[in-house]
Design a binder for these strands. Structure first.
Lengths: 214, 214
DNA sequence: TAGATTGTTAATCGATTAACAATC
DNA sequence: TAGATTGTTAATCGATTAACAATC
């Protein structure tokens, strides 16, 4: 559907720009430049201009970018000019931590349901928002009833694929996968948050910086 | 120190190979090939061979790779042939969830301490491992005493930079940052786990697939 | 031997960066 | 106007992939 294919690194950077623009606005500023954004994010100014130019002309030559307009534009591009309802599968450590995470709510991601297979958890509520925990049997019903568009997988690795399949069957639009497991899926957008990969990548670099081959 | 600079994507993929090799071993297999690994990970076989060739010759022509030897080799490369002690700063939702996370322990990352500034939490213990929560004042002392080499930042964004600075002062070797905040650091390896960026990247793609410019 | 699969080089591809005319 | 900074093109850079000789 998209006219040009946007490279994945661009998508990630757009989210960084959005955060940075918010910070600058909170500091009371009105405008910024690709130079300033680049310095704050350790990126080249030309990269920021190029990334933005995929989507339109948001700046004024000689003047830079109006921050409020840039924020609004980025929110349209990132799809967060509307709120998104989120359902989390797995009410364990990670699932419950996420359902209390303020960072998501701030950007308009609203966790409206958790799902778990443990009968002792079903029917209880999590966190200050009192988010209900439902049975996995209710997955499709609640996804439809509560207009859940994003599913979060926070179950053990060995259950992740079957849960993902069920989410897709229920018509979910996107999945954020926290399970340390590669998922094979069609007709859905997938984003992995892989904590154990991040730790291994970290120790790889620590190791390499002190144990270089001779 | 390293003889060749290893591209960052290679580091991430090495961790994926390690996980995949473990899965194959658990299935009772003895050998694999770059073809099989590629199919399982949706990567080209030649990329896997190229990645591994940065570090040595682990296979046999015509035969493929011995899984046990490949796992051992990958663990040496990734630095997880030894255990790592981890300290988590911030005993909130994310910090406590991480300290209970089995996925890390399995790879030899052992959370030995949490740090928090909330006096009512200090002196208490978290999870089945009974991990102690210390005062932030004890940060450097405990890092040395407990041989903590990896610090995890699980505090609000506005405190992340100062905590990171203190971790570096205490001589930490690597930092995994969960705060939604760009950190400016020297003399330390940094890895970001940015949950809110992942969500925004997801909705960007959902949005783009249904709202392509006309 | 014939078939399979590696390690490695060379070709391709895509992303980043520099440069600059346009223009506020 | 002169200075600043954009949007965009062209050049550069680096990563991925294909191809293939080596060899089990």
């Amino acid at each position: 559907m998209s006219p040009k294919k946007i490279p994945d690194p661009v998508a990630k950077r757009l989210a960084l720009y959005h955060r940075c623009v918010n910070t600058l606005l909170n500091q009371g500023k009105d405008t910024t430049s690709s130079k300033e954004l680049g310095e704050r994010l350790s990126l080249k100014a030309s990269q920021i201009r190029k990334d933005l130019s995929y989507f339109g002309d948001f700046g004024k030559r000689g003047m830079g970018y109006n921050l409020k307009y840039l924020r609004e534009s980025l929110e349209h591009i990132l799809g967060i000019s509307k709120p998104w309802n989120v359902g989390i599968v797995g009410a364990g450590n990670i699932g419950t931590a996420l359902s209390n995470y303020q960072g998501l709510l701030k950007d308009g991601y609203k966790v409206v349901a958790l799902f778990d297979r443990n009968p002792s958890k079903i029917g209880t509520f999590v966190g200050t928002q009192k988010i209900p925990i439902y049975s996995l049997n209710e997955l499709c019903d609640k996804i439809k009833e509560l207009s859940i568009e994003i599913g979060v997988i926070a179950v053990p690795a060995n259950h992740a694929q079957s849960i993902a399949d069920r989410l897709v069957e229920c018509g979910i639009k996107g999945i954020v996968n926290f399970a340390p497991m590669k998922l094979y899926l069609k007709n859905v957008i997938l984003e992995d948050v892989d904590i154990s990969i991040s730790f291994k990548s970290l120790t790889f670099k620590i190791w390499g910086s002190s144990h270089g081959k001779t």
